[in-house]
Design a protein around this nucleic acid. Structure first.
Lengths: 124, 124
DNA sequence: ACCTTGTATCGAAATCGATCGATACAAGGG
DNA sequence: CCCTTGTATCGATCGATTTCGATACAAGGT
């Protein structure tokens, strides 16, 4: 799980405190999954679907890519915890895992009062 | 600029509507910049700094990487619109560009009432 | 002018990632 | 049972990314 936080409601960081290496590695995995246009489109197609689920058979023909390639991208999104899949009969359905996108949104949200920049003279 | 939106306040998408290819390419560039542990740590060190600015000379020694490598990562973050740099005398200072992280946070935030999943039988 | 220190750019080496065709696996229908 | 259709995995290829040492550029001090 993504960087777990205490009980104080919101966001351990990125914008508030230096990230520890382990947390950075973990977080980077998720962002990396979002760092590809095909996966972003897949995710948005899945997330915006009315019923909350999409059949792979509806996703594949929307791209100019081979079926194995789409399958591979879906796997990366799944491994990043962004989506989940379920097989029903012949077909496999994917759905959004909102906890993960929620968490990312929180991580990227800065706290209310950010102190204003006031230049320093000389460092170290 | 990241996917521009009308005047209705919030978030064209990712989670609400299928992303167009151009928007996806643009967005992916930013997420890709976040998809590396070193860059995430750099960004968090810059963003969480009290004065709003950090000297490169304070960032470099925090990593087990060569100075050119850190410089390269900073360049990628800058090209993604996440940070900006300014030279003052011998030193170069980096600061967060909050508009970009704000926008990402918005893009990852889903609208209040997400319709509940209701399974379908057979697709196409 | 020169030297020193901080930062960026330039190749080059090694690793990673996207993509494909071939193939395996899953499930339902004759 | 075999055949068909949907999906996943495998292995290979090729371009992108990370990293380095070497070097160039910037600015201040002597």
């Amino acid at each position: 799980m993504l960087g777990q936080e205490g009980a104080d409601g919101c966001c351990p960081g990125l914008l508030t405190a230096p990230l520890a290496e382990d947390q950075a590695v973990e977080l980077a995995r998720v962002f990396k999954a979002l760092g590809d246009p095909v996966r972003l489109r897949l995710l948005s197609m899945i997330a915006s679907r009315a019923g909350g689920e999409v059949c792979v058979c509806d996703l594949t023909p929307a791209f100019d890519l081979s079926q194995p390639t789409i399958s591979h991208h879906l796997k990366l999104l799944r491994e990043a915890g962004l989506i989940a899949s379920e097989r029903r009969g012949t077909w496999v359905y994917y759905r959004l895992l909102p906890e993960t996108t929620d968490r990312l949104a929180g991580i990227l949200t800065r706290p209310a009062g950010q102190p204003l920049p006031e230049p320093v003279e000389a460092p170290s």
